[in-house]
Every structure is written in structure tokens, then in C-alpha cells.
Nucleic acid binder design. Structure first.
Length: 934
RNA sequence: ACGGACGUGGCGGAAUUGGUAGACGCGCUGGACUUAGGAUCCAGUGCCGCAAGGCGUGGGGGUUCGAGUCCCCCCGUCCGUACCA
């Protein structure tokens, strides 16, 4: 009777470790399969019950594929550089390496307790110098590369130099330049290039390198003392910590991901990733087709980007972003004071302020007029903060008749509005329809929008006033962080020019510093290091961002011990892409984009033979916590508001006082104190109650609220507790049973009993009432075989669809039915044990051994199902009248439609219901339904 | 505002892709066994109704012999993105 999960799980976890059961070799004689989990950042809080969800799913797939004969790579490691460890280091002086190691050890313990089939010999840690040596190496490859738009791939910078030697450059040359070029690159002849000194050449090359340093607008987060990439900023505040972020221009390392914009977009179509992730990436890349248009101003010009060149005859003014470099130039002396004042205010408004009030229109006239390229009319040039400096050219041609933002601006400042499309009511709003007909005067009149766009671009190009252009929203990625706990950037400076550290100097290890804080001069922490230089030349002091290591770690798992290369060609050719990648959807536009970018780059430079890292991606849903929110009625007569929440074990200890549970911040609502928000009164259901010791018995009401599981919300469920009580196999099954993998769902510990009971019942099939192992060799009966094969079929198919909740349900059905049949036959129980092994490996391994096997069940061949056991010879037809089921009639499967119809109509009960009338129609769907229409 | 996902019992969720809605589990009700049960087993459990029967997959319409599933309109929830020219 006793299913002793504790003993069994401990025994097998030790045994697996001893035997090296999950060790994987790069074995070319067997097909490889690569199942990867997004590796965790080892935080101090440890794992909660939501974290392993994806790991359990991928572990099931990995184990299943192993049974199916694949050589499965299923590794785990740690994304171990990161801010929390550094923040902790700043507070305590403890080196982040130490806390990181401690946290990783704790993670390992927790992961081991769940019984994963990870090959820990392949563990990687991004903060380990043997790992980041290669992160640095890849950075140097990026530094050593430029993107050739003609061949559409990255090439060695030496080839560009050769090209300059020979042909020079015409400047802003689209045959050599790609991406997010913020600076003007002048042209030069081959002779001039050859005459350039080293410094000039290097400065020019910075505009082409895929890893480059430039003065760039960055997201500066003063509270964190570092810059952030665009995907690390949400709603104008840092994603981590929620600190305000401002735009700032500073010297900054960036990666030219924008060169890859089109390929990153196109590649999505080849991937088996969720539509939502692909869509998020498409939006983030933000491709738009249109044209650049030059508006002359005196001897100068302003260039705008528009997706609607068809509306050119509706241009009423031009608006520049406040940060636009030409604002100063185009401002007339008499408007100078006003414009400068406006620009000053607009620039200093934080991103957040700007976003918070998009409804408010503001702007100022520069006093200048541009010439319309088609009509020659004067077009006033304005400055307005609704125009973003970072998109397009930072300037727009305003068409208030066709663009609602321009319309609002025009209305606000009383500027003219020209109707551009037939049927537009420009008094009310702009007409943004893309199927309209152009009505503004000029050669586009009468054309439909798409034709007009084509025609307008042709004309612009003909007269040299502009050209068709594809624009991307994607910006180059800020790569330097003014922080300590990250990979040092392997660059030194000679004459202020960055040079690559020789490969032989890698890894450039993190130096010791006295404090993990910026220097008094505001230099990053690395500037504190003694002798932070290379042959007397200063080394770079910023470090790489969190996503550097994770952009390529999947390759390192293939060959983690390699000292000569990031991974050997043999290993890479064997494992190739990740077959199944499981992780959270929050990485949609960060990690997953950089991951693809680096893969494409390594492909271009010939280091790997594929240009997408993961064929299939699945996002596991979040497991939410249930928070018990308290409403506490309280008398404030003594002027003190203090509430105490006590854990259950202290219920009977009057006066017990636990500071951790003291709540002293409450919000007034509906005449009661509804305690929520941060620092809220929350407690887990059934484990604690609220008590108020100062005021006698208060009125207490607990309302369950489903929300994110987090320490700060007092709703965390620790897997260790679950395992202690029910075992890892029950935890694994229950996490899968909760619902579809991709879906978010609340955790309810109460429900776990069901899966625990299931395992006990499964165990009991193999044991007699005295818990003696008892399995017979007898021939199985037909019903027993049917249950087995139905289960094998369902489970095999469901694993393929990653539908684990329904697999678990099928196992439960099987065990219930076999229990009813008192089945104790090897021919049934043995295959069933293999099928259960991916889900509940410990109990399966134990029963496998008891069945007499010396070798681990992980080596067992997956049992295939045989349809012959599933065929029925009769079917109980639901007989419905006008679609409503009224009775059931059983007929042999072999019966033809006509025979079924005849027999149904002959049935007395059917006759009774027909009341002698002839049915209008009878539909017979074999093995499905009979519907009688009356 | 736009994009994506979704809406089924008291709860988590099934439904062979147009064919018996509510599998499986939790919870609940009743019973058995028991010194006891937060153990186990049996029965029941969508709603209304004594019943016959009726109503039921967010709401409304449609297609169909038949709709949770397909089409149109609306409502609601969650997640992205957010003045992207």
C-alpha cells in the first residue's frame, strides 16, 4: 500500500548521479535532438512553483525523445551576470561572484529535487571566464565586421578597407552603409583614403563596424547609473526597478542590429514560433515602406520620411523634432528666443512626461519656409514634440488633411488644412483611409492611393527630390553598461581610438575593485581597478549588457569544455539548431531578437551552418499565485493602526508577534480597510488568518485574488514544500495537469491530491494489499489491451502537441480502468510504466527495477500503439431529433448507413417519437451520430 | 488607439477540428468501513423542475440536418506596443 515517494526519489536521484544516466555524448551514430530551456538568472529568492513549469515540459519531451531513440541534448546553466547580485554587492560589499555562486547552488539543489534529466556536465555560467572568453571573442568578431548591403551579409572589415583602398567611398553610400547611421559620413576618394592617417581611418571605420562606439542618444537611467537598451525601458522607466529614464547623448558602444532588420523580419516566416512572439518582433522591427523627400530651404534642405508620398500636394507645413540638428540653423533671428525656449522645455521633458500627455499639442514656428518640391510653394517650418527624433529623419511633412496628428497640430495653431482625398471631411478629422482617391490639385489627382504613391515616388526620383525608402523602427542596440557585474568589453584605447584586444589576451577577466560603485568622476566601476590597461593603453571601462551571454549560450552547451573555440565544428554540425526552445514570452523583443541576430552574424562569418537559433519556440504561461486579500474592520480610536497576520502555527500562541507579518500601511475603502497595493496584507489561504491584537476581534474577510506569484505579494508557493509532502513526481504531474502549457493559470495546492492519489493507485497496480510486489505474466484480456493502447496512442500524440494536461488525464483514466479490472499483468503494466516515465521518472524507474530490469528505464524503447486493439465492433449511436439527442441505440460498426437508418426507424421508441409521421430526412454519420429531421 | 491571445459548471480545464458539451481532477452531497480520519472505497454532482421536460459554452444575429467549433456585429478579460510619419 505504501508508495514511499521520499525514499524512491532520493534513491534514484543519487543513482542517476552515480551512473551518469543523463550524460550525453556527441554521438554521430544516432540522430540528435536539442531541447533547450531559457536558463535562469539565479536570484536570491530561489525557485517558486511557477519557475519549473517550462522545465518540466521540456524534460518530458527530452525523456520522450530519448525513448524514441534520439540522442538528446538537454542542458541547463545560469545567466549569472546581472544587476541584483551587483546591487547586493554595493550594499554589502560582498563580491557578486560569491552571492551568484551561492544562489546557483541553491537553484541546483531545487532543480535536482525535481528530477530533471539535465546533463549537468555541460552546465554553463555566463559569468564564468571560460564562458565569457567566447562572449568577448564574438564581440571582437562583431567589431571586426561590417555589413555589406550588396551581398546582404556581414564581412570582415579588412574587405571594406580593401574596397576603400581601391575605390574610396561616395559618402552615405547605400552600397556600403546600412542601419542606424546617426552621423553624416562624408565621401572620399581612394587616394584620400590612402592619405588618411590611422586615426582618421579608424574613425571612418567606426561607421561601419557591427560593434561600434559613437555619440548616440541613449536611455540613461540616473538611479541605476547606466544606460539601457530600448527593450529594457518600459513606459519611460527602467523595466527593472521602475526608475525614470532620460534621453542623453553620450559615447556609447552599440551593436548594428539594424543592418539585420530585414533578415530578422523575413526569418520569422520560417520559424515555428507562437504568432504572438512573431508579431511582437515584427512590430518591434517596424518596417515601413515610403519615401524620403527633400524640401529645399535656401541653399540647404530638410529631408523627411513619409509613408504617404501620395499626399505631397496636401503638405501644409513641416515639423521638426525638437532635437533635430537643423532646428538652430533654420530659426530666424527674430524667432530665436522663442524657439530656443521651446526646445529647451521639450528636450527636458522626460520620455514619460511626453507619453503621459500625448493629447497636449505644443510647438513653435521657426520663421523659415521650405520650398515644396513639386509646386514650389512656401511651406512653413515648425518644431513640435509630437515628432520623434529617433524615427525616420526626425522631421515630417505635415499633411493635416491626411494625418490626424498633423491635423491636430494644424487646428491648434490655426494652420491651413488641404483636403487630399475625395470624401474627406477635413473640418472634423484627417482622412487616413488607404483606399481613397486623391483629390488635391496636381498630377496625382484622381489616382487611388497605392497608384499615387508609386507615381509620386517616380516623380520624386525623376526630379531628384527624393526616393523610395524602407524605414525601420528598430534602433541599434546600446551595448555598454556603466556597471561592474558583466563581461568586460575587450577593447583598449590608443589615442582615444578603440582597438581590439588580441585574441590571446582573452578572457579579459573582471578586475578586483575596492567598491562596486562609480568613481568620484562618474566613471564606471571598472575605472577603479588597478592597472586597468593593456600595454599602457587604457582598457574599456563599460561592461556588456545582460543579454550578451544569452545571445549565443545555446552553442556553448554543444561543446562546453572547448578551450580553443566557442564550440567545435563537429559539435555544431551534429547538434545544429535548437529543436525545441521553451521559455517565457517576456523575452519576445529582447533576448529572442538578439539571440537571432547573433546567430545570423555567426552564420554570415561562416562560424555556424544555420542562421536561426531555434526551430520551434514555446512560451510557457505564468503560474499565478492566489493572494488572500483582507478587509479588516477597525476602530481607530486609539489612533494606532496596526494589524497582525499570523501563520497558522501561531494561532494558539496569544500575543505572538512576528515582525514579518506586521502590516502598518492600509488604504481606506468602502468604510473598511482594504489592504492591497505594495506592503499589502496578504497571506496564503488556509495557512494563516488575520488577527488584530490591539483591538480585540475585528471583522475579517478574505477575498482570493489571482495575480502574479511573487515574494512581495505573500503568495509564493515553494516547490520544496510540495516535494516534501507529495514528492517530485506528483509535483511534475500536477504542474502539467493544471492546464495547457502556454496558458497562464493559478496555482491551487488543494488540487494536488488528485495527482498524488493517481500515483498511489498506479503503484498499487503493481502491489498486493500487503505492498508486496505482485505482477503476473498472464495473457492480457482485450479490454486491458484496449486501455493500454488507447493510452499509448493518446500520450504519444499529446507529447507531440505539447498537450501534457490531457496526457495526464489519460493516464488517470487508464489507472482507474485497470484498477477496476484488477489488472496486474506485465504485458500491460510494463509498457505503461515506460509511457509514464517522462512524466514521473522516479516512480517509473523504481517500478521498472521491481519489474526485473537492471538497466535504467531511460534506455527503454517507447512502446508503440497498435490500432487493432482500438477497433470497436459496435457503436452506441446517439439518436437525435432535429439535433437534440433523445436516445442511444447500439449497432455493429459494419452496418451500412442504409442499414443503420432502417434499423433506427424500425425501433419502437423512435416510432413512438415520430408519432406515425414520416421523417423529412435522416442523417447517418457512421460512428458518430444519427439525426432525424421531422 | 493598434496588434496578439482569450471568454465553457462552484474551481482548474476536456471536446476526435462541424457530430452525444462538461472528459480528467479539485470541491461539494450522501453512503460504507472505522476508536478516529484531513485515510480508503462506493454513489451522485451544469442549471431550472417532483417529473415529463426545458434551458445551457460572454451577448445578439446568421450559415447548417446539426455550431463551443464556421461567418457578421457587440461586450468583457489578459498580454504586448504606444504620437513610428
Amino acid at each position: 500500500m505504501a508508495y514511499e515517494h521520499k525514499d524512491i526519489e532520493k534513491k534514484w536521484q543519487e543513482e542517476w548521479r552515480k551512473r551518469g544516466t543523463y550524460r550525453v555524448n556527441n554521438d554521430p551514430s544516432r540522430p540528435g535532438y536539442y531541447v533547450l530551456d531559457m536558463f535562469p538568472y539565479p536570484s536570491g529568492a530561489g525557485l517558486h512553483v511557477g519557475h519549473p513549469l517550462g522545465y518540466i515540459a521540456s524534460d518530458i519531451v527530452a525523456r520522450y525523445k530519448r525513448h524514441c531513440g534520439f540522442n538528446v541534448l538537454h542542458p541547463m546553466g545560469y545567466d549569472s551576470f546581472g544587476l541584483p547580485a551587483e546591487q547586493y554587492a554595493i550594499q554589502t560589499g560582498q563580491h557578486p561572484a560569491k552571492t551568484t555562486a551561492e544562489n546557483a547552488a541553491r537553484y541546483r539543489q531545487q532543480l535536482d529535487a525535481i528530477g530533471f534529466s539535465f546533463d549537468w556536465d555541460r552546465e554553463v555560467r555566463t559569468s564564468d571566464p571560460t564562458f565569457y572568453k567566447w562572449t568577448q571573442w564574438i564581440f571582437l568578431q562583431l567589431f571586426d565586421s561590417w555589413y555589406d548591403p550588396k551581398t546582404d551579409k556581414a564581412r570582415p572589415i579588412s574587405e571594406l578597407v580593401a574596397c576603400f583602398q581601391e575605390k574610396g567611398s561616395i559618402g552615405q553610400d547605400t552600397s556600403t552603409l546600412t542601419g542606424d547611421i546617426e552621423e553624416f559620413v562624408g565621401g572620399f576618394t581612394a587616394e584620400e583614403w590612402r592619405s588618411f592617417d590611422e586615426r582618421t581611418r579608424q574613425l571612418v571605420l567606426q561607421h561601419f563596424r557591427l560593434a561600434y562606439i559613437s555619440d548616440a542618444w541613449v536611455n540613461w537611467c540616473p538611479a541605476m547609473g547606466t544606460v539601457l537598451a530600448n527593450d529594457e525601458v518600459k513606459d519611460g522607466v527602467s523595466e527593472r526597478g521602475g526608475h525614470p529614464v532620460e534621453r542623453k547623448r553620450m559615447k556609447q558602444w552599440s551593436l548594428r542590429i539594424t543592418s539585420y532588420a530585414q533578415r530578422l523580419l523575413d526569418g520569422l516566416d520560417t520559424l515555428d514560433w507562437s504568432e504572438s512572439i512573431k508579431e511582437a518582433q515584427r512590430n518591434w522591427i517596424g518596417r515601413s515602406e515610403g519615401a524620403t523627400v527633400r524640401f529645399p530651404i535656401g541653399n540647404d534642405f530638410v529631408e523627411v520620411f513619409t509613408t504617404r508620398p501620395d499626399t505631397l500636394f496636401g503638405v501644409c507645413f513641416i515639423t521638426l523634432a525638437p532635437e533635430h540638428v537643423l532646428v538652430g540653423k533654420f530659426t530666424t533671428p527674430e524667432r530665436k528666443a522663442e524657439v530656443e525656449a521651446y526646445v529647451e522645455i521639450a528636450k527636458n521633458r522626460s520620455e514619460r512626461d511626453r507619453m503621459a500627455d500625448v493629447a497636449h499639442v505644443s510647438g513653435v514656428f521657426t520663421g523659415s519656409f521650405a520650398k515644396h518640391p513639386f509646386t514650389g510653394a512656401d511651406v512653413p517650418v515648425w518644431v513640435g514634440d509630437y515628432v520623434l527624433a529617433g524615427y525616420g529623419t526626425g522631421a515630417v511633412m505635415a499633411v493635416p488633411g491626411g494625418d490626424q496628428r498633423d491635423w491636430r497640430f494644424a487646428k491648434h495653431f490655426g494652420l491651413p488644412i488641404i483636403a487630399v482625398t475625395e470624401g474627406a471631411d477635413i473640418e472634423k478629422e484627417a482622412d487616413e483611409r488607404k483606399d481613397a482617391t486623391i483629390c488635391s490639385d496636381g498630377f496625382l489627382k484622381g489616382l487611388k492611393v497605392p497608384q499615387a504613391i508609386k507615381r509620386a515616388i517616380e516623380e520624386l526620383e525623376r526630379i531628384g527630390a527624393g526616393q523610395g525608402r524602407i524605414n525601420f523602427r528598430l534602433r541599434d542596440a546600446a551595448f555598454g553598461r556603466q556597471r561592474y557585474w558583466g563581461e568586460p568589453i575587450p577593447i583598449y584605447y590608443k589615442d582615444d581610438i578603440p582597438y581590439a584586444l588580441p585574441e590571446s589576451e582573452l578572457p579579459l577577466e573582471l578586475p578586483a575593485v575596492d567598491k562596486f560603485l562609480p568613481t568620484a568622476e562618474g566613471e564606471p566601476p571598472l575605472a577603479r581597478a588597478a592597472n586597468w590597461n593593456y600595454q599602457g593603453h587604457p582598457l574599456e571601462t563599460t561592461t556588456m549588457p545582460g543579454w550578451a551571454g544569452s545571445s549565443w549560450y545555446f552553442l556553448r552547451y554543444m561543446d562546453p569544455g572547448n578551450n580553443d573555440r566557442f564550440a567545435s565544428p563537429e559539435a555544431i554540425n551534429y547538434w545544429k539548431q535548437v529543436d525545441l526552445y521553451v521559455g517565457g514570452s517576456e523575452h519576445a523583443t529582447g533576448h529572442l531578437l538578439y539571440f537571432r541576430f547573433w546567430t545570423k552574424f555567426l552564420f554570415d562569418r561562416g562560424w555556424i551552418p544555420f542562421d536561426e537559433p531555434a526551430k520551434k519556440l514555446v512560451n510557457q504561461g505564468m503560474i499565478q499565485g492566489i493572494s488572500m486579500m483582507a478587509r479588516v474592520a477597525v476602530d481607530r480610536s486609539n489612533g494606532v493602526e496596526r494589524y497582525l497576520v499570523l501563520p497558522k502555527e501561531k494561532h494558539d500562541t496569544p500575543g505572538a508577534f512576528d515582525r514579518n507579518y506586521l502590516i502598518d500601511q492600509v488604504n481606506f475603502k468602502e468604510g473598511r480597510y482594504f489592504i492591497n497595493e505594495e506592503g499589502a496584507a496578504r497571506t496564503r489561504a488556509k495557512e494563516a488568518i488575520f488577527r488584530e491584537f490591539h483591538l480585540g476581534a475585528p471583522e475579517v474577510e478574505l477575498t482570493p485574488v489571482v495575480e502574479k506569484m511573487s515574494k512581495s505579494k505573500f503568495n509564493v508557493v515553494n516547490p520544496d514544500d510540495i516535494i516534501a509532502k507529495y514528492g517530485a513526481d506528483t509535483l511534475r504531474l500536477y504542474e502539467m495537469f493544471l492546464g495547457p502549457l502556454e496558458q497562464s493559470k493559478p496555482w491551487d495546492t488543494n488540487g494536488i491530491e488528485g495527482t498524488f492519489r493517481f500515483l498511489r493507485k498506479f503503484w498499487n497496480l503493481f502491489h498486493d494489499p500487503n505492498d508486496a510486489f505482485h505482477v503476473r505474466e498472464a495473457e492480457p484480456t482485450k479490454p486491458e489491451l484496449k486501455i493500454l493502447h488507447a493510452t499509448l496512442k493518446k500520450v504519444s500524440e499529446d507529447i507531440g502537441k505539447l498537450s501534457f494536461n490531457t496526457s495526464v488525464a489519460q493516464f488517470m483514466i487508464a489507472v482507474n480502468e485497470l484498477g477496476t479490472l484488477k489488472c496486474d499483468k506485465r504485458a500491460i503494466l510494463e509498457p505503461l510504466t515506460i509511457a509514464l516515465a517522462p512524466f514521473a521518472p522516479h516512480i517509473a524507474e523504481e517500478l521498472w527495477q521491481r519489474l526485473g530490469h537492471a538497466e535504467s528505464i531511460t534506455a527503454a524503447i517507447w512502446p508503440t500503439w497498435d490500432e487493432q486493439y482500438l477497433v470497436e465492433d459496435s457503436f452506441s449511436y446517439p439518436i437525435s431529433f432535429n439535433g437534440k439527442t433523445r436516445l442511444q441505440l447500439e449497432f455493429p460498426i459494419a452496418l451500412s448507413k442504409e442499414e443503420v437508418e432502417a434499423q433506427v426507424l424500425a425501433n419502437p421508441e423512435v416510432q413512438l417519437r415520430l408519432e406515425g409521421k414520416a421523417p423529412k430526412k435522416v442523417i447517418v454519420v457512421p460512428k458518430r451520430i444519427v439525426n432525424i429531421v421531422v
